[in-house]
């Protein structure tokens, strides 16, 4: 099987870009390259990864300025043609601002920056990004964000549910969805969603920080394995 070609976008202020390169390259064994935000060509990538960080200093709103960077025009075009895109943390915020995923991020309801490992329920395995997990499986993945309080109107929330687009939810160790486990106040404990077309995923927790036991968890590997098996089966 040919290796996947993964492009990790680097914005000024990205700080999880090299973690992503490590997870896709050394850990997952794929071809990975960094793509600077001023580039207007993605090359022949199979997947675009928008990493976490504080792109453009989080000025105005998280992700708002990144949306208009030259490379994002190409990412939007790539996704529009069915290309696969993952946004983690700030990358998720950028996908929301760019309109590739529905909804917005509000400041955490506690107003605190939350940096810890959380329990996540794999809500559906019927996606290209979660097929390696079991439905209802509880996994441990770290979060690190100040604005991860997912909000969308009732119609959007219903549409996400109707189309099985919610992939990860904050939960208790036993998988139950409680207010207590909803670390940032997100609607329906939402931690990650996919687009209706299924090719774009955003999640606040960092799977790339949970890919080897020395990091405390390798539960994030499932995301990488799911994508790799989807793309290699398609070829």
């Amino acid at each position: 099987m040919d290796k996947l070609k993964v492009g990790v976008i680097q914005f000024p202020g990205s700080n999880c870009d090299h973690d992503a390169v490590h997870a896709w390259g050394e850990i997952s064994g794929q071809d990975v390259k960094l793509i600077w935000h001023k580039e207007s060509d993605l090359g022949d990538v199979d997947l675009v990864f928008l990493p976490g960080g504080f792109s453009y200093g989080d000025y105005l709103r998280c992700g708002a300025i990144a949306k208009y960077s030259p490379v994002m025009k190409e990412v939007i075009r790539f996704a529009g043609k069915g290309g696969m895109v993952i946004g983690v943390c700030n990358g998720f915020q950028i996908l929301l601002e760019a309109g590739l995923l529905p909804g917005v991020m509000l400041p955490n309801d506690s107003l605190k920056f939350i940096c810890k490992t959380v329990n996540l329920k794999v809500t559906t395995t019927n996606s290209r990004f979660t097929s390696d997990y079991q439905t209802g499986q509880v996994i441990q993945i770290p979060v690190a964000h100040g604005e991860g309080n997912y909000f969308a109107g009732d119609d959007t929330i219903k549409s996400l549910q109707d189309h099985d687009q919610i992939v990860f939810q904050y939960c208790e160790p036993d998988g139950s969805l409680t207010d207590q486990s909803n670390i940032n106040g997100s609607r329906l404990n939402i931690a990650g969603i996919v687009s209706k077309s299924g090719n774009v995923m955003g999640m606040m927790p960092h799977p790339e920080r949970a890919v080897e036991s020395v990091l405390g968890s390798n539960n994030g590997l499932g995301v990488f394995k799911s994508v790799i098996s989807y793309i290699s089966e398609k070829v």
Binding site: L60, R61, A64, I65, Y68, E97, G103, V104, L106, F151, A152, G153
Partner: peptide
Amino acid sequence: KLLANTVM
């Protein structure tokens, strides 16, 4: 386009 996100 930029200054406000009219969703919120």
